[in-house]
């Protein structure tokens, strides 16, 4: 098995069903080590207390949005270089620019296939090697 497939991925989305959908797509791409958080606040706590290798986060969430989570991660001394894939329902130019400025590793627009998701993750991991 490809070593990169063993990474621990944190899926952040306020909809439990969407977390399950992404989990299902990740499994189809060969990723099995997956954990979940329902918003940015919970995700940040998990990132501080658990070893996570990769974050996939929705943009629109209550309490702490995806972009707020990204900014919090990037400004944290220990988590600053965490690979971060942002999920959005639309490719709004302003959102993309904001995410890139905040240091997002890449972004993916819903709907997406397991293949596209896998390619995005592989590309991010390739860039940090």
């Amino acid at each position: 098995m490809d070593v990169s497939k063993k990474i621990k991925i944190l899926v952040v989305d306020d909809f439990a069903t969407m977390r399950k959908v992404i989990r299902n797509l990740l499994k189809q791409s060969g990723y099995e080590n997956i954990t979940e958080a329902e918003d940015g606040v919970v995700a940040m706590n998990m990132l501080k207390s658990t070893k996570i290798d990769f974050v996939i986060s929705d943009w629109n969430m209550p309490n702490m949005t995806g972009i707020e989570l990204l900014k919090a991660v990037r400004s944290d001394n220990e988590l600053g270089s965490m690979p971060f894939l942002m999920v959005t329902a639309e490719s709004l130019k302003d959102n993309v620019v904001e995410a890139v400025k905040a240091g997002v590793s890449n972004y993916i627009v819903k709907p997406f296939t397991a293949e596209v998701l896998g390619e995005k993750i592989d590309k991010i991991l390739e860039n940090i090697k």
Partner: peptide, 21 residues
């Protein structure tokens, strides 16, 4: 069930996004 309701919301959101584009 609740998962169906969540999914219908998400599908509606995605179709809206794809059509708006």
């Amino acid at each position: 069930n609740g998962e169906i309701r969540d999914a219908v919301g998400e599908i509606t959101n995605m179709v809206s996004g794809a059509a708006r584009k």
